[in-house]
Design a protein around this nucleic acid. Structure first.
Lengths: 348, 348
DNA sequence: CACAATTATGTGATCGATAACATGAGGCGT
DNA sequence: ACGCCTCATGTTATCGATCACATAATTGTG
């Protein structure tokens, strides 16, 4: 309950504006003004302050500043705690964007579910002050509203009401490209291994998959929901193989695809000769697998920084228009794991 | 220069100790004492304060507290910015341990090299206050000393002078198990794909590899240094294949192993029939590759939390003994990518 | 029961910055 | 030369907590 962190070794006491002021022969407020907008000072004064700052190696105490101004210099990034499948590159992108805008980034794992999750989220927000929060994990509607009461919250991959239609379609749009690609290779019967449906990205991919299969006049041979992991992909593929009428599998990410390929392998099926497999995310190692993975390349750093820019735009209303929340540099990458549909249906 | 984050929507003004005090009919200091150690208050007073806090939904302003006490409630985690190969599970472990101890965790990417890196590090520390820092990236000796002047810094995988001998050996100790495993399979000529040598882990694995090869009376057929990526592993393996006298490759992590296997594949060599490959880290998908990867399982969460506990121990001297910085749950996992050495030397 | 020792609570100062207001110096028109 | 306005700067209050000290309430003891 009571936090007990201690200031161990006092870090070589830093100079304050008062010391700078005394050394420069001005008042502390002048020093404060120097930091806010030096152009408002007489050139000679400005110089004196600058010299004093340099000499004392001054850097402002953000804690004090924040106490007075109530402005927060930190934004919160919520990441999955248990899932090792979170693309840290998204986080890197977000961190860079935050830094760029002068914010610090606190990364906190949000775990649990239900009321426990709600409570954890509250605890995290209490730990603030935060200027805003960017979540890479799904947040339930009520939790989101509750959090929004305190600070602006952006959920990456989720779009506000205005953007919803476009956002949803464009985020999953590559799923259409995948289906068309498979159709062009002669596949008529396709199955999908979907990600956890509380994730917007997983929902989008599934929705677009369904629509595209229908539009192309293909047959949907089943959707298996899975976690984001290879192990889960393996299991899901086994489930689908109970009724193996398809010649191609579209997995919602590369990990799932790896698990699926292994399951097919264990089932005596060759990829892509017997069954094609397509993934999503283009992990750096996907190009080096045997067979290398046909997948959707994503610029994850860019997605992360976009999401952060969206949040920052929400923090400084009127300053800058929020960036389009759409997809960023998505493209289908054709590799070995997808090939022509087998001539005589599937060898079983 | 001047940071310009703004407090957008004022977050529904939070209650202060003064308001709690007034509602409870006590002084603000009593409220403060309640938080510090409620047992010092009369039971009746304590109850009044508790009720008032609950009613006002009070949570303390950490900024103000921190300004007064100078205690920092945040610790810094330095992660690689550019490398997507950083195991985020280590970060999760560290974050959990920090949270457990009542600290918040700021995750910041440390990029660049040389003087630029030094400057960035300084800038990050200025952004504090931080109670301490945990680095998952290599830090040069001078930079480390400079940072240590301000706050305690622990570099994960690096050990202080007392621990050095033991730490180095134990961190890389599984390398010995690998070499012995390969020797038992009849391999006499081995090559190593090493990680970037500025990383302690990479150095440790290489050092133990060299020693183990020598001790087992095997032949070291070359060491290729690489980045941590699959692409780099591919290139390194190609280099090694210029003089293909070995029958087994030990890669410093699973990504490198994946790249190496692909290079062997492209070279017309089968794994493990012609050449065995062993990785390190046991990524969750390594068990599902074809062939599945013989590798060293690591409890990365535990490593991360251990490192954080080490830091926290340094922050609260005398409180708790720092945990052993040694290996955590490391074990060799035998899978398909390693097998008996080919009978008649290597097929080329 | 009185008086000291102890415990519980209140009052004012403080951390280091910015906000709000006050003051002094200079410029300029009449 | 006077007053008014502007600009540069100084003085004091303030953010929300804890610290240091003062004082009131309680306990123990002969």
């Amino acid at each position: 309950m009571t936090p007990s962190p201690a200031a161990a070794r006092p870090p070589a006491r830093a100079a304050t504006i008062y010391e700078v002021a005394r050394l420069a022969g001005v008042s502390h407020q002048t020093v404060s003004r120097f930091m806010a907008d030096r152009s408002k000072l007489k050139a000679s004064t400005s110089e004196k302050v600058e010299r004093a700052m340099a000499e004392l190696n001054y850097s402002p105490n953000l804690t004090a500043r924040s106490l007075r101004t109530k402005a927060a210099y930190r934004v919160l990034a919520l990441v999955p705690g248990s899932s090792p499948y979170f693309p840290s590159r998204m986080l890197n992108g977000a961190a860079a964007a935050a830094r760029e805008a002068g914010y610090h980034l606190d990364v906190v794992a949000l775990e649990g579910a239900g009321p426990e999750r709600t409570e954890r989220l509250r605890g995290i927000l209490d730990g603030g002050p935060f200027a805003g929060a960017l979540s890479f994990v799904p947040i339930s509607g009520t939790d989101l509203l509750q959090a929004q009461e305190r600070i602006p919250v952006v959920v990456a991959g989720e779009y506000d009401d205005k953007m919803r239609g476009r956002g949803r379609i464009s985020d999953g749009s590559a799923a259409q490209a995948i289906v068309e690609h498979l159709a062009a290779l002669g596949h008529r019967r396709i199955a999908h291994i979907a990600g956890p449906q509380e994730w917007p990205a997983a929902r989008n991919r599934l929705a677009v998959y369904r629509k595209a299969v229908h539009d192309a006049g293909l047959e949907d041979c089943g959707v298996a929901e899975a976690e984001w992991s290879a192990a889960s992909g393996y299991t899901a593929a086994q489930t689908l193989l109970a009724n193996p009428s398809f010649t191609a599998v579209f997995a919602a990410n590369d990990h799932l695809a790896i698990g699926a390929i292994r399951a097919l392998h264990d089932h005596g099926l060759r990829v892509p000769a017997d069954i094609s497999v397509v993934g999503w995310d283009d992990h750096p190692e996907s190009a080096f697998l045997v067979p290398s993975l046909t997948t959707v390349h994503m610029d994850l750093e860019a997605q992360g920084s976009r999401a952060m820019e969206q949040l920052i735009a929400a923090l400084n209303p009127g300053n800058t228009p929020p960036p389009e929340p759409g997809p960023t540099g998505m493209r289908l990458v054709l590799r070995e794991s997808s090939g022509p549909a087998p001539k005589h249906g599937q060898a079983d």
